[in-house]
Write a protein that binds this DNA or RNA. Structure first.
Lengths: 341, 341
DNA sequence: TTCTCTGCTGTGAACGCTCCCAGCACGGTG
DNA sequence: CACCGTGCTGGGAGCGTTCACAGCAGAGAA
């Protein structure tokens, strides 16, 4: 008796109630935690649900509760860049799975153009999702503030810019990671340690630079301006950065690079310049993205715990949806030693 | 008068009707195409919508229409693999954008484990999405058949396996692409043209091999078994495949590789073996993934039109949801000449 | 005139669920 | 005995929308 063709009308809570010999109210109570339901009724309802194959109609539920029991995953601005970033994929996957554990669907929202941004903002603020997981590059974008001000639960990945911002976020401990990597390079006996930074208009970029400078200062090494060049996380900017470093600091013996992708660019330049890695110059990256393993030599890097970040983002968002006040979560990074140091 | 803190109750169709001086029914008609509405009423309603900032409550609408006005993007099985595949990202992005143009949200669904598979199947078949965009590696998975039999509109990316399958799909013309590439290699004067195939339990793998063989036969070149080795689209299998090819066919002067990722592996092996590319051996890939540009030398490859594939998937799915009968869509590939040939 | 047809409008009834309240039985306490 | 609290149950109301239907005015045909 196959059901090819049309979809048959699914059973409702009414059908379940009749099947179990109880009222709709009792079925609903079982569905929502089972408080104030006798064990006998509980059992009868569960059996009826199994027999009928009942699945709650979320639209009907949402209509009355005002909740949608879904959350949005919002990506603002330069989509190409993000979609090429393997870290983004890990994040998206992690969030989807963490939400699935709570039976909450994830809606993917891409706000590339201004039009899309407006449409999506309207969609969100009119209550079609209970909260938003936000991923954005230069995180000082207006969408976050707008949503946050409209009272929409919101958790960002990485620290948002604006100082007064009360937006909750989850991030890796950039400064501490940078400290660890710099210490690691010093521990190899290197003393001319350069750095290729990330974009310095983002908290992450600033923090990684700060950590690097701190450790050099601690070690009593003058923080030479020539030792620091800035990049934008792209591979090409790594190549260019290394060229400038080599020109400014011919006796360079190590580089801390603020992202793995840039670090690959650095490796390329070093190879062209005839410097051996790690013998002549040790190279440390940041992220532990797949790029770190794909390079030759394989990159020593600071692992950002993206699986934990996504899990925490979901946890914090759900807490916020539940009415709790939430704060920032900073997760530790981990040094992964490979061939480049 | 900021609205910090709680979210105010959004305006309903009733508010709009009062504001415009018409009835709910008229507002609803304007919202749904504006048939049988006088221009004056039309205008009054639109103005009222703008003034009140009204946004339709999709839950209420879905409750009565039975449609959810959302679709699922379902990824089955080996998620790691797919998430690392840049093509997958292009597909996901393309589908999201194509759907956004129709104001339809995309729900991301990952069915890795058997448990997730069951949960998601229940979710889908109980009408929480209107249709499903399916991406799967070995596309002969049971989910597709199950959903299709339950009457859920479904479009797969790439040809599903099972012969009797009536599932609509969108795919690149693998056979034709393979023919073009093989012809291209022959046009360079190469005569010992090997092939590293994809998995031969998938239609794509089979088709690419078939196209290759056809052209060799046309050209009157014996299709030597030694010339063909099989891979699984992974980089490593490309390396291994090339090793076997070199052992079996020492005078190899070209290779058609069924994916760019494998082609990179082939390049690695050829370099190790001291063969110059393209001087000694020309290498042609398939996909035109970012990997093709990142390799050295840059890969000549057959471009799969992933942006068009995603757009077509959405078009076909919406047609199917609208009740139309839909067929398979095969899109042409395009030869992209670069340094490796 | 009268009747029909067309274009437009308003209204009651769903859709399937949760919330709330009234009410039951029962045991303990004043 | 009366009263209250507790655990549990049933049913009415209502969430915001679309749908079906009835009804209206005005134009044109009989």
């Amino acid at each position: 008796m196959s059901n090819t063709g049309g979809r048959r009308r699914p059973p409702t809570i009414h059908d379940v109630a009749r099947e179990a010999g109880v009222s709709r109210g009792t079925v609903s109570r079982v569905l929502n935690g089972g408080h104030y339901v006798s064990p006998a009724a509980q059992e009868a309802v569960n059996a009826a649900i199994r027999r009928t194959g009942y699945v709650v109609n979320r639209h009907a539920r949402s209509l009355i509760t005002g909740r949608s029991d879904s959350v949005g995953f919002l990506l603002t601005e330069p989509q190409e860049k993000f979609f090429e970033d393997p870290n983004f994929n890990v994040l998206l996957r992690g969030c989807t799975q963490a939400l699935a554990a709570h039976d909450i669907p994830l809606l993917l929202m891409l706000a590339g153009t201004e039009d899309e941004r407006r449409r999506i903002t309207r969609y969100i603020t009119s209550g079609h999702v209970d909260g938003v997981l936000l991923v954005s590059s230069h995180s000082g974008n207006p969408v976050a503030e707008e949503l946050s001000e409209a009272g929409v639960p919101l958790v960002a990945c990485g620290k948002p810019i604006g100082l007064g911002s009360k937006i909750s976020y989850v991030a890796a401990d950039d400064r501490d990671g940078a400290r660890d990597m710099t210490r690691h390079l010093l521990s190899l006996g290197r003393r001319r340690v350069g750095m290729v930074t990330g974009p310095l208009d983002t908290p992450g970029g600033v923090e990684r630079l700060a950590g690097y400078k701190e450790v050099l200062a601690e070690a009593g090494i003058a923080v030479d301006d020539d030792l620091v060049v800035s990049g934008d996380y792209s591979r090409l900017s790594g190549e260019r950065g290394a060229e400038r470093l080599l020109a400014q600091v011919p006796d360079l013996d190590a580089v801390f690079v603020a992202s793995d992708l840039m670090a690959r660019g650095v490796l390329t330049t070093l190879e062209r310049a005839g410097r051996r890695v790690p013998e002549d110059v040790a190279v440390g990256g940041f992220d532990d993205s797949p790029a770190a393993l794909a390079s030759s030599p394989e990159l020593t890097t600071m692992r950002q715990p993206f699986d934990r970040i996504s899990a925490e983002m979901v946890r914090v968002l759900l807490a916020q949806i539940g009415g709790e006040d939430t704060a920032a979560v900073i997760l530790p990074t981990e040094l992964v030693k490979r061939e480049s140091t």
